[in-house]
């Protein structure tokens, strides 16, 4: 899952970036409105955390411009808690709204919910045969036994599982699992797929040669 954080306050941006990374997301950041809009339009992020008060271009503007092109889920962050501001944000096409100062756990939970809803699987628990994927706890269990996974491996499974039955191309997987800062060797994805197959089962992720991967 790849996210974009647009926030001008350096300390806050760094904190958010680190927290989301530790949750297993690939995170891009933008320190001002222009760069934020550029990145948001250039990539298919799974969700965007967008501050309202930004230099160059404010959050409202970014949102209204982005909505003409993409349906990327957007969580607005603002220091203003007026009802009018909240209504404005939601009317402009924001998917959720959080007032600063916020609770970090709440922000992460809201991001998770946004991603699930956007993928069309609002239920946080997905069951495939004997495999349970708990997207809230970010755990996977086989026959009620927890499987130890790295954040990247979990993200791979979650991405494919929330698009169950759809073939996902390697490029798309790269785009959504790695941020622009990650060093992504061309065979890194193969390594992750291989590890997941070892831990969960050979046929869990199937390869469609020339197309990509799929979980049936």
């Amino acid at each position: 899952m790849r996210l974009l954080v647009v926030e001008d306050e350096e300390d806050l941006r760094n904190g958010l970036e680190q927290a989301l990374r530790e949750e297993g997301y690939a995170v891009d950041v933008a320190p001002d409105g222009k760069e934020g809009l550029y990145k948001a339009e250039a990539w298919d992020y799974d969700a965007i955390v967008l501050d309202v008060m930004l230099p160059e271009m404010d959050g409202w503007e970014i949102l209204s411009r982005l909505r003409k092109k993409k349906k990327t889920p957007v969580l607005m962050l603002t220091a203003r808690d007026g009802v009018r501001d909240r209504i404005k944000g939601l009317d402009l096409g924001a998917d959720d709204y959080l007032v600063k100062p916020f609770n970090l756990a709440e922000l992460i939970a809201r991001v998770r919910a946004l991603i699930r809803r956007a993928a069309g699987t609002p239920n946080p628990v997905v069951t495939i045969d004997s495999i349970n994927i708990d997207m809230a706890a970010r755990t996977i269990s086989v026959d009620d036994a927890l499987v130890a996974l790295t954040a990247r491996e979990y993200a791979l499974i979650e991405y494919l599982a929330s698009r169950r039955g759809k073939v996902v191309s390697r490029t798309e997987l790269y785009d959504h699992l790695f941020s622009e800062e990650d060093e992504s060797y061309s065979n890194l994805l193969d390594v992750h797929v291989c590890n997941v197959r070892k831990k969960i089962g050979k046929d869990f992720i199937q390869t469609r040669r020339g197309h990509g991967y799929v979980i049936d």
Partner: peptide
């Protein structure tokens, strides 16, 4: 008043984020 609260909210958000992040593991 709105501006003042806005100016205060941002550093508080930084504090909370940093502390909660630190405590998470």
């Amino acid at each position: 008043t709105a501006d003042a609260s806005h100016e205060l909210r941002t550093p508080i958000a930084v504090l909370l984020t940093q502390i909660q992040l630190s405590l998470s593991r």
